[in-house]
Design a protein around this nucleic acid. Sequence first.
DNA 1: CATTTAGTTTAGAACTATTATAAATTAATA
DNA 2: TATTAATTTATAATAGTTCTAAACTAAATG
Lengths: 142, 142
Amino acid sequence: MLKNSEFVNKLRNSGLRPTKQRLKICEVLFNRDKTFHFTINDLAKSISEKFNEKISLATIYNTVHAFKDKGYLKEITISSDKSYFDTNITKHHHFYDEDTNLLIDCNDNEIGKVNIKNNITGKKISSVEVLVRVASDTQNQN
Amino acid sequence: MLKNSEFVNKLRNSGLRPTKQRLKICEVLFNRDKTFHFTINDLAKSISEKFNEKISLATIYNTVHAFKDKGYLKEITISSDKSYFDTNITKHHHFYDEDTNLLIDCNDNEIGKVNIKNNITGKKISSVEVLVRVASDTQNQN
DNA sequence: CATTTAGTTTAGAACTATTATAAATTAATA
DNA sequence: TATTAATTTATAATAGTTCTAAACTAAATG
């Protein structure tokens, strides 16, 4: 729940000009109580519904990537046909419901700490992601 | 290390006709000591190098998907721009080297068992995948 | 406040991975 | 050997994403 001037600061502080478009995108993404997951298409739709005007897809892509690079969004890779983004930038994992194609955040009550015993020599761990795919009981496991 | 007649049986047993193309793909994928990771493009390239003739991309896609459906391959989702496949169909996790774009299998010496304490009500877990992204020390963590 | 400049937005083209199509081919079957 | 049903193929189509270059706009400068 941030207000416009806070978004202006947030953007300025990260070297991004607070343009009309970016502020609108901030409103849709960050002006809410709960974090959520979205695709570029979801976001484009939300914007045009909320403001009754469109922002160019190219701008949406640019902005989402800029926000990701600045650490305001996380990208979640579930399938190769589409990118998902998460406004929850804390370390956490996901359930992916294969029936509904919905992503659900996991918290520490649901997935215990992942124990990485050995890492590749000379490399640093940049992230650890767990994806638990779930489906209704009738579907077969693989 | 399987021979041609074994591939014929393998295919027949799973209701797939042992065509020239499928047998060639089997050779490239399964006639080796170690399992490996590949993209569709990698596979297409390997085939044309190994046999000095091409198999239509459509056939490669069809066959890889058929093999995946039959459980002979696993798909690994790392990025949204390309699908990776794994001939190692046992349960295991991966390191992904962001510098080289290489996938490396984890074994139980490297990642301990993931403890799923609670699952979504009414759903069955179909897979648990851990992806550990690594990069050289100089790159920044996120 | 006007001018400059550098960053941003935009529509649309281009690109990439993947899937669909429908005709030709081939494996299995009668 | 003839029939049939599955498979392969080249190519078109599609979807998500990135590129491009012109128009626009925020910030910096005088």
